[in-house]
Simulated scan of single mutants.
Amino acid sequence: MKKIGLTQRVEVIASYGERRDCLDQSWGSVLLSLDCAGVPLLNIANKEVAFQYLACLNLDGVILTGGNDLSFTQSPKAAVERDAFESHLIQFCIENKLSILGVCRGMQMLNVHFGGSLSSTTEHVCKNHEVELTDGTSIQVNSYHDWGIKPNDLAAELSPLGSAKDGIIEYCRHKCLPITGIMWHPERMNQNSDIGLSIIKELFL
């Protein structure tokens, strides 16, 4: 059974004075259905400690999950420690030839990591919409993000594979490495699960 690392969102529970790492339980079900074991990853900000931790886990691949805005947005939903850990994680995966899938925030993180940028958007929050793929077909996806990637914002190392009608890039792939980003949520099975599962299979199985 392949072991797939899953990054976690940070939730602040003020009444307990806690910052909690959290993960949608649906990810476990999705990966188990593909005969993979999901491994929740701790948000470790220190690079040396993060690399030692990741080396012990013997992962076969990584999914950067959704939740939290990136810190540069200065959003109250941001989590500095998560940004730091995911940056280290991407570098660890590159050095160890591990595949990465970035989902929603995860795709944003990949784009910023490779030198791209983001723009705010109000048309992609809690909606379903069409994504036009570069092969001429289209798919229906869910959408829960208020930051998006315009064509000029995409990192030079990434290739666009699908866009919404307003031009926001919803699907991309690294030009050389086994790294893919999607802006929709395949773990929310009542939406567009087929292509999401296909992408997971292509990357990890």
Results as ranks from 00 to 15, higher is better:
169 I>N: 05
141 V>Q: 06
166 D>Q: 07
172 C>F: 07
172 C>Q: 03
145 H>P: 02
168 I>T: 14
141 V>A: 09
160 P>T: 01
152 N>Y: 12
161 L>S: 06
174 H>E: 09
158 L>W: 07
172 C>A: 13
165 K>A: 14
168 I>H: 07
136 G>V: 03
144 Y>W: 11
149 I>R: 08
138 S>G: 04
139 I>P: 00
150 K>Q: 14
170 E>K: 06
136 G>L: 10
168 I>M: 14
158 L>F: 11
162 G>E: 12
171 Y>A: 05
153 D>W: 01
156 A>E: 15
156 A>W: 08
172 C>G: 01
161 L>H: 12
151 P>R: 14
151 P>W: 15
136 G>I: 08
148 G>M: 07
168 I>S: 10
176 C>N: 15
144 Y>E: 06
144 Y>Q: 09
139 I>M: 09
169 I>S: 05
156 A>G: 04
145 H>Q: 06
137 T>E: 15
143 S>D: 02
160 P>M: 03
138 S>I: 01
163 S>M: 13
137 T>L: 13
172 C>D: 02
173 R>M: 14
164 A>R: 03
136 G>C: 08
147 W>K: 03
160 P>Y: 03
140 Q>T: 10
160 P>C: 05
174 H>P: 00
136 G>Q: 07
157 E>R: 12
157 E>W: 07
173 R>W: 01
143 S>F: 04
153 D>T: 02
141 V>K: 09
144 Y>D: 04
136 G>H: 08
176 C>E: 15
139 I>G: 03
171 Y>W: 15
162 G>F: 04
140 Q>W: 07
159 S>V: 08
148 G>S: 12
148 G>E: 05
161 L>C: 08
147 W>N: 03
168 I>V: 13
142 N>F: 06
159 S>E: 13
